[in-house]
Write a protein that binds this DNA or RNA. Structure first.
Lengths: 234, 234
DNA sequence: GACAACCTTACTTTTACCTTACATTTGATT
DNA sequence: AATCAAATGTAAGGTAAAAGTAAGGTTGTC
């Protein structure tokens, strides 16, 4: 697991929720030793939900027991905000908990105390499956978009991409050639609850089209679905 | 787990590999009871590889101990043919096996003897993540409506849907092939307490029928219930 | 057969988005 | 601190697809 092929998984944003500070610190150090760079830990249900909104974690490790509510109801609330994989932890070796957790739609389940190595491995197993397409290379017909290098190459010419352009393209790509609403795009590029950037988005869309499209005025790759949003054809 | 939302997972092709025929039969009956319809079981590494080529399973449950080689090397060979999720089984409660399995890239790991229910739940957890559906896909006979992409495909042709069309179809679909009144449809598409759009709705219904119906003038999918409303046959 | 509910089509209007040129911000460099 | 270039944001007129309208036609029910 020390190869470089899965290193991008270490950049994923993790959220740890547990009421015991010692355990929280322990897990954090296990994960840091493994190379995970973006970890946020909170002790309560309330803070967990807050972090879901502002931090937008890509995976969560939840304790079943929390001071202000159980992990299961937290899980359900989280799923309404984000569709991220979840690994449950429980102190009690009660099979009931396992069934409840997995039955709700959790991705894995571990009983405390656990071996650090097992946590790491199960974490990788989940991340691998959920985020395997993070090669950051988007191939659309004759056009190759390299998110990592922030450039587009088409017909032998290389066009550089700006930060906002990369943000927009990434959001569109992650949607998996489904329609992304203008609101969602604005939120993911400029941050939550920000309005008034619709026109700016439009200007960016135009600039992107001038780089990726054969004919920017009648786009074939980044298309408009009037009244609904934009779509990237992959 | 008996809801109908995850029923499509039960159609997935499963491959069981274990050298003990009793265990093989036991797992098969557990899975059959749950509703899994496509199960193939083999006792050897050699046959497992053969099945990967001809049966093309969508998930595999592998025993670590096999008469003609261990499960780990089988796993590596399988991955060269198919990139499917794998759940390992082991009789020995050796942590080493767990690390080897997950380290290689397996998706989950269970120690025998296990609870049938846990197997089922872990299986669902893996399948859900690997084959998560587009919940916005409506299949009506020969016609597939993709709400997320706002398009309808019928007989190989793809027709785009407009915003209002998507709204109407979504409302009809959510009603679950029950009759939806014209008032209700208008309210859900144009907003509450708005009248005077009945005729506009009719025009939209016509346009939808031209996209989804074989014969738009005698509809079979989006039918009129005179005096009551419209109904989507699912 | 008379009425009402709904269909159908062509036509008009509107809205959501396009486009372009220009203004402002950001951030690197001296 | 000043300068400059690149990136980003803004404004405004333009446009085509989508939505709405109207009017004559059709179907089913009492």
């Amino acid at each position: 697991m020390n190869g470089n092929k899965l290193d991008f998984l270490k950049d994923k944003r993790l959220l740890l929720v547990d009421d015991e500070p010692e355990l929280l610190d322990m897990i954090e150090s296990i994960l840091q030793d493994e190379g995970f760079s973006s970890i946020r830990k909170v002790p309560t249900r309330k803070e967990a939900l807050e972090q879901c909104r502002i931090y937008k974690p890509e995976i969560a490790i939840l304790d079943v027991m929390l001071p202000d509510g159980d992990g299961f109801s937290l899980f359900k609330e989280m799923r309404r905000i984000l569709d991220i994989p979840v690994l449950f932890l429980t102190a009690k070796d009660q099979p009931e908990d396992l069934f409840t957790g997995l039955g709700l739609g959790a991705d894995d389940y571990m009983v405390k105390p656990f071996l650090p190595r097992e946590l790491i491995l199960r974490l990788y197993a989940i991340l691998r499956r959920c985020y395997k397409t993070d090669d950051s290379l988007i191939t659309l017909d004759e056009c190759i978009i390299d998110i990592g290098k922030a450039e587009v190459s088409r017909k032998g010419t290389v066009f550089p991409l700006t930060a906002k352009e990369v943000g927009i393209l990434t959001t569109l790509y992650k949607a998996g050639n489904r329609i992304v609403t203008i609101d969602f795009l604005c939120n993911s590029v400029w941050g939550d609850n920000r309005y008034g950037y619709e026109n700016s988005l439009m200007a960016h869309i135009r600039r992107i089209r001038e780089k990726i499209e054969e004919n920017p005025s009648s786009p074939a790759l980044l298309v408009t679905i009037k009244g609904l949003g934009y779509k990237l054809n992959v």
